Structure formats: structure tokens, C-alpha cells
Computed example of a mutant assay.
Amino acid sequence: MSAEESSDDPPAVGALASAFHAYRVEREGETVRYIGEPLVSPRELGEELAPLFARRGYEITVERRNDRQGAPAPYAIVAEPKSVGVDGIPWGNVIMFVLTVVTTLYAGTWWYHIDLANDPLAIVEAWPFTAAVLGVLATHELGHYVVSRYYSVDASLPYFIPVPPPIGTMGAIIRMRGRIPTRKALFDIGIAGPLAGLVATIVVTVIGLQLDPITVPGSVAQATGEGGGYIRFNDPLLMDLLADLVGQPTDYASDPTKAVNPVVFGGWVGMFVTFLNLIPVGQLDGGHILRAALGNRHETVAAAIPGLLLSLAAGLYFLTDYTHSVVLWVIWGVIAFVMVRAGSATPLDEAPIGPWRWGLAAVTVGLGALCFMPVPVEIVLA
């Protein structure tokens, strides 16, 4: 990196010339305004110039304005120093993470059958469940984050999403701002999360399978054994393969007083999240991979995905008794439709990704297929 690129000063006017013709520059404290006319659309202007300013430690907004001096300059690029919070601490990320730790600990008490009414502090005993679930999700998102930083794409730290049990979280997301430089960069950023998450998922699952099963309280075991209603999380093929490899069961149907160690469920979450993220539409990881691999031709493939998901829902409804899973795939069919309409990321350089990345994509899609469950959650009634 040159001395100019590493400077803390905002970019010179000439550095904006490909997208913005600046008439003058105004300064007000640490805020810098470039007054002029865009050479591309306002949306593309912000996307194209954001990485340039981010490297200097600035965030930008594009404003339409009436020029005070009467010059034909209806736009301004407003650059302000980036702030990650008080004293450099990303408080938003920290607060969301702490809340998610609490909700996953509470969810873990369900799996460990911990009675909080008698001892509220016993919630900390569920820490292995929290470590397993958040460890898998954090590894996935940090895979995206590290590769984004490698390509100088501005990315936030992960935002974890807390929800009630039985999982305690809806996952985590990172926010990326600015344009992706190349299709190769888009591919690498998109695939880094699933691959990193899968490694963590496999490690967590193998560890969980080798831990002792938990003892189910007598009242719960009796209700299950007598045909009482309960929720069953079905295993994907990857879980079965790992269980066979380790030589440990994932189902204790013959002994209702035992249940698989909750750490294994962290692996289940990782597998489910991996499959959903690899659905090849829009801003999902699979959408990034597909866009990078096929270029503009990706739209033909992506357009078929909502129909496939809705067809899966219809098949479950008309051909099986698993009608409760229909809602899940209808929801994801609608989500996929919205994402197809919204479109995917558009890299600046459309050069092909090359054969070895195609091979990596095939391996990742294959592993993702092993995580597929047509009926992830089954409601077993008396």
C-alpha cells in the first residue's frame, strides 16, 4: 500500500474522477463535502466510492442539494470519519451478542432439563450448548468477515440475533458496504462462511457425540414413552455419517431416559444454517457463489429456486403426513422470491472465477446437500 493510500486524509478530488466531477470541496470540522455532479447513478456512486473512502477511515452519504453559490452542482458526497462506538467499542455488536448469550443459555436449560425455578443461577450450567451454537455461527460469519477484509471490502463485525428457545438465536449477520471488486472476490467472500461454518460444525458434532448422553427427568421420559406429544429434530445425512464414523448414536428411542448431549444440537444448527445459506438466490451465500460462477446468467437458475421450494412444500402437503413442515418451505419460497426480485451483488470486474473455484463450489454444494432435511422438525403427537 502506498503512503497516499494509507493516509488518514480524505481522497483528493482526482481520485473521484471516474464517478464524480467535483467543483469544489467544503470542510466543516471533520466532515468533508465534495460538491459536484455524479457521472453514474446516485446509488452506483455510493457503492463505487465507498471502498475508496473506507480505506481512509471515512463513511460517505450522497445528498441532493441546492447549491448556495448558484453553480449547477445538485449533489454532494458527504464524508465523515467512521465511528465504531464509544472509545472504539462496537456497542451494537456487543449488546446483541450478550443478549444472544442469555437467550441461548436459557434455551440450553430446556435441553439439559435444568430447573431454573429452584436455582436461577443454574442457567450457567448450559454453557456448553451456548458455546456450541454460537461457536458454529460465529465461525461462519467470521469467515465472511476475514475474507471481506482481505479484499478491502468494508464489513461490520457479526450481529447476533437473539430469539426464544428452543434454539435461542436466529443466527448472525454481517453488513457489507461498497462494491465487490471482482467475481473472484465475490466467490471467496460468499463461500468462506459456509466452509468455515462446516468445519466448526463437524468439530462440534464430533465432540458432542463423544460426550455422555444426558439423563431425561422421569416425568419427561414417561410422557415420551407413553406416546405424549413432543418435538423431534430430524438428522441430516451428514449427522448420520458423523455418528457412524464416531460410533455413537444420535437417537435413544429404545431408552427414553437418555438423550443425546445438547452439544450435538450445535452441530445440527450449523448444518441447517449451512443449507439455508447455500440456497442460490440474492444476498444469501449461495446467491453470491452462483453470481460469481455464472455471471449474469445466474438469473436463470435463481428464478427457478422459489418454485422448487414451493414444490417441496406442496409435495409434503399432498404426499406425506408432514404437513407442519409445509409452512417452513412456503416461507422460504417467499423469501427466495423476494431475493430474486431484489437481485444479487454486482462486482466491478466480470472476469471468470477459474476452474479450481468451480471445483471448490462443487465440493461446497455437495456438503450443503448432505445438510438438507426435507422435514427438519417433526411434531410427534400422542
Results as ranks from 00 to 15, higher is better:
A223Y: 00
I214H: 06
P217W: 04
T215D: 11
V220I: 15
A223F: 00
L186D: 10
A200D: 07
V216W: 00
G208L: 04
T205G: 04
I202D: 03
P217Y: 03
L198E: 06
Q222D: 10
D188W: 10
A192P: 03
A192F: 08
V203L: 15
V206E: 09
L186Q: 13
G229V: 07
I214Y: 10
I202A: 10
P194R: 09
V220M: 01
L211E: 12
D188V: 08
D212N: 15
V199S: 03
A221C: 09
G193M: 08
V206N: 01
A223S: 13
G218R: 10
T201R: 09
A221F: 00
A196D: 06
L211T: 13
G193L: 05
G228L: 05
E226P: 02
D188N: 12
L195V: 15
A221Q: 01
S219D: 15
T215Y: 00
A221G: 11
D188Q: 13
L198I: 13
G228D: 14
T224Q: 15
T224F: 11
P217S: 11
L209I: 11
V203R: 04
S219H: 11
I202P: 02
L195R: 12
I207A: 04
A196W: 05
S219T: 11
S219C: 00
V204A: 07
D212K: 15
V216K: 00
G228S: 07
P194L: 08
I202H: 01
G190H: 10
V204K: 06
I207N: 05
G208M: 07
A223C: 01
I191G: 04
G218F: 11
S219I: 01
P217C: 03
P213L: 08
G197E: 14
T205A: 05
D188F: 12
I191Q: 05
Q210D: 11
F187R: 12
V206K: 02
I202K: 02
G190N: 12
T215I: 09
P217M: 08
G228M: 03
E226F: 09
P213K: 02
Q210A: 14
E226R: 09
F187A: 14
G229T: 15
V206H: 01
P194E: 07
I214W: 05
P217D: 06
I202S: 08
F187M: 14
Q222S: 09
I207T: 12
V220T: 14
G225K: 03
P194T: 05
G190W: 10
G208A: 08
P217G: 09
V204R: 01
F187V: 11
G208V: 11
Q222P: 03
A221S: 10
L198V: 01
Q222R: 12
F187S: 07
G229H: 05
Q222H: 13
A192I: 12
T224S: 08
G193D: 10
V216Q: 02
L195C: 12
I214S: 04
P194Y: 09
L209G: 02
L198A: 07
V203K: 02
D212W: 03
D212L: 14
V204F: 10
T205K: 02
G197F: 13
G218S: 10
I207P: 06
G193R: 08
V203D: 11
T205N: 04
